[in-house]
Design a protein around this nucleic acid. Structure first.
Length: 117
DNA sequence: GATGAGCGG
């Protein structure tokens, strides 16, 4: 389960990020995106957790968690699809992976009006 | 060397 973590402090390290998520469950891998050589870290990272339930707790608890005087944002990653996307048509979460959203999903209705004649 | 919305290998 890939988790996107944003608003990370530049002082934060992958190890700390990993431990931060390990407090809520098992963390397979944690990485922080940054430039090649320079210290220009993008300020966001990714955490991989095998247990989905722990992922929920981690996201729920770490989303907006204040660390180093900075609040971090945690959510499910949308890109980087490791699997081949079998055909999960009934996800527990929304398509965006927002756990807090209740029912903001509005399918398009009546977009096709059938041309004249 | 600093930077603050963003999805990396």
């Amino acid at each position: 389960m890939d988790i996107f973590v944003g608003s990370l402090p530049f002082k934060l390290k992958e190890k700390e990020l990993k431990e931060l998520f390990e407090k809520f469950g098992e963390v397979t891998s944690a990485k922080i995106v940054k430039s090649k050589s320079t210290r220009q870290n993008k300020g966001f990272g990714f955490v991989d957790m095998p247990n989905e339930e722990e992922v929920r707790k981690a996201i729920f608890e770490l989303n907006g968690f204040e660390i180093m005087g900075r609040n971090i944002e945690v959510s499910l990653s949308e890109k980087k699809d490791k699997s081949k996307a079998k055909s999960t048509k009934a996800p527990k979460l929304n398509s965006q992976g927002k756990l807090f959203v209740k029912d903001t999903y509005k399918p398009f209705k009546g977009i096709d009006k059938r041309g004249k004649r």
